[in-house]
Simulated assay, not measured.
Amino acid sequence: MEMGRPFRKGKWWMLRVEEGEGGIPLEVALRERMHISGRKLQKLTRMDGIRLNGEKVSLQKNIREGDLLQVLLFPDEEYGVEPEEMPLFIPYEDEHLLIVDKPAGISVHPTEVGQKGTLANALAYHYYQEGLRTKVRHVHRLDRETSGLLLVAKHALAHSILDEELRERRVKRIYLAIIAGTLPKKEETIHFPIGRDRHHPTRRRVSKTGERAVTHYQVVEEYSQGSLLRLELETGRTHQIRVHLNHLGHPLLGDPLYGGDQRWIRRQALHAHQLSFFHPFLEQEMRFTSPLPQDMESVIRQWREMDGKFTPR
Rank of each mutant, 00 (worst) to 15 (best):
G210I: 06
P91N: 05
G226M: 10
F7R: 09
D197R: 05
L166W: 02
R8Y: 04
I50A: 09
M3N: 14
S107R: 15
L176W: 14
I241W: 08
H216M: 05
K40L: 09
Y127W: 13
E234L: 14
P110Q: 06
K186L: 12
R137S: 04
H199F: 15
A122K: 03
S227P: 00
D295Y: 08
E130H: 11
T134F: 07
M86Q: 14
L88M: 01
H239F: 07
E84F: 06
G195L: 04
V206G: 03
S298F: 09
G236D: 00
H216R: 15
L30F: 06
R5Q: 15
K40F: 09
D67L: 09
W303A: 07
D67V: 12
R169Q: 12
E305G: 00
E93G: 01
V206A: 02
Q268I: 00
M34D: 05
H279F: 07
Y217E: 06
V206P: 14
K56E: 13
D163V: 06
E168L: 13
P91F: 08
V108S: 05
V219G: 06
A104M: 03
E297I: 02
A156D: 02
R141S: 03
I179N: 02
G117I: 09
E297M: 11
H96M: 10
G148M: 03
V57Q: 04
V100Q: 12
R204Q: 10
R203E: 11
H191Y: 15
L68N: 07
N121A: 01
E297K: 15
Q70L: 06
H273F: 10
L68K: 11
P184Q: 12
S147K: 06
R301V: 12
S107T: 10
E130C: 10
P87L: 08
V100C: 10
M14D: 08
M296F: 06
G226K: 09
E19P: 07
G195A: 04
F310T: 14
K43S: 14
K309D: 07
F7I: 10
E164N: 12
G181S: 07
H155N: 15
G249H: 03
A153F: 02
H279Q: 04
A272F: 05
A124M: 02
L252A: 01
L44V: 08
N62C: 12
R203Q: 07
E188T: 07
P312Y: 04
D295F: 07
M86A: 09
I300A: 05
D101H: 09
I241Q: 09
E2V: 12
K309V: 01
G4D: 15
S37G: 07
L248D: 06
R51G: 08
D76T: 11
A156G: 00
P103G: 02
R133M: 11
E232S: 12
R267P: 02
Y128P: 04
T311D: 05
R141A: 02
H199I: 00
E145I: 03
H140M: 04
I179L: 08
L123W: 05
P312G: 04
L97H: 04
V214E: 05
V243H: 01
H244Q: 03
M86Y: 07
R267V: 00
I161P: 06
D76M: 08
T45C: 01
H140T: 01
